[in-house]
Amino acid sequence: MKNKLKHIVFILGSTFLIISIFKLNMSAVSATSHIITDKKATSVEKSVSCGKKVYLTFDDGPSCKITNEILDILDKNEVKATFFLIGNKIEGNEDVVKRMYDKGNSIGLHSYTHNFDKIYCNEDAFIQEMIDCRNEINKTIGISPNIIRFPGGSSSRFSEKGIKVIHDNHFKLYDWNLDTTDGFNPRLSPDTLYRKAIKGSEKMYAITLLMHCTDMNENTSKALPKIIEYYKSQGYEFATITEDTPELYSRLRDKK
């Protein structure tokens, strides 16, 4: 009888232990799932709190036909962009510049001549090119922007000293981190330009997209509606570059 009782107690004890272990495991699984869910939530909250942004930027304008087409598309889609202008292209296209400004787009400096030999012969020449461009913009719309984009990009253009000269003249520098390459090859198909405009974007929270708006960039204007549609579908805010925007430029050529 005693042995039978011991056997029953053993079975009950074992059953209780198994049930306890099972409950403990289930609690652990539940806790782990909650942690994973929290991590996913944190990731989503981060993307919202960081404010995923895309800066649509257009270089080498103004032009009459294509810049106006791009402005039409921006208006239709209720988004704004940033235009880095060449000073000697403004005469004769004043109405285009006035329109881009009146519609709330941002305007920056892209040199007066876009002549690399003149622009990059020394720091003083570079500064003068930007000042001359700014003066043309001021004559047209009465503002004097200090946001600039290096023709060809800032990579290896100046030493730390040269960048300091630029900053001492109160200019702020803005390159790009995504490129349609329509400056090198404006004849790329609209679909190719679209694919380049979104390639790798899923890993980026802040995108500065390089495009061009010369009269050779007809395919850029054709690709633009689909580019805008994509970034809207991904939850990006369309922002413009201002003097409050953090600078974006390449490594310095040297430390001299």
Rank of each mutant, 00 (worst) to 15 (best):
Y120T: 04
C50E: 11
I70R: 03
I73P: 07
L193R: 05
I241K: 10
E129R: 03
Y55G: 00
K118N: 13
T192D: 15
P145Y: 00
N146H: 03
L85H: 02
D175F: 06
S201Q: 09
K65E: 06
L5N: 02
E94L: 03
A31G: 00
M130G: 02
A41F: 04
T240M: 06
S30N: 04
D244Y: 12
P225K: 03
H7F: 07
I148K: 01
V96P: 05
H170M: 11
E237N: 14
H212R: 07
S63Y: 09
K65P: 02
L248P: 07
M130H: 04
N77Q: 12
I36R: 01
K222A: 07
H212D: 12
C50I: 03
S233K: 14
S49Y: 06
S20M: 06
L71H: 05
T208C: 02
K80V: 05
H34Q: 09
D182G: 13
Y194S: 13
S233A: 14
N138K: 08
L252Y: 14
L224M: 08
E243F: 06
T32D: 08
S159A: 04
K40A: 05
P246F: 11
I227V: 14
F126I: 06
H114S: 10
F10R: 04
K226V: 12
N105V: 11
N219S: 09
G108E: 11
F126G: 07
G153R: 00
I163C: 07
G13N: 03
K256A: 04
M204V: 13
R134S: 10
I66S: 02
L12S: 09
I90M: 13
T42Q: 05
S201R: 14
P246E: 05
V96R: 09
E78H: 12
T37H: 03
T181N: 15
G61R: 06
I8N: 04
S250Y: 08
D179G: 14
C50Q: 06
A28H: 01
A125N: 14
L173M: 15
K2A: 01
N122A: 08
C133N: 02
F150R: 01
V54Y: 02
V79T: 09
E94N: 08
Y101M: 09
V165T: 06
K232M: 05
S14K: 00
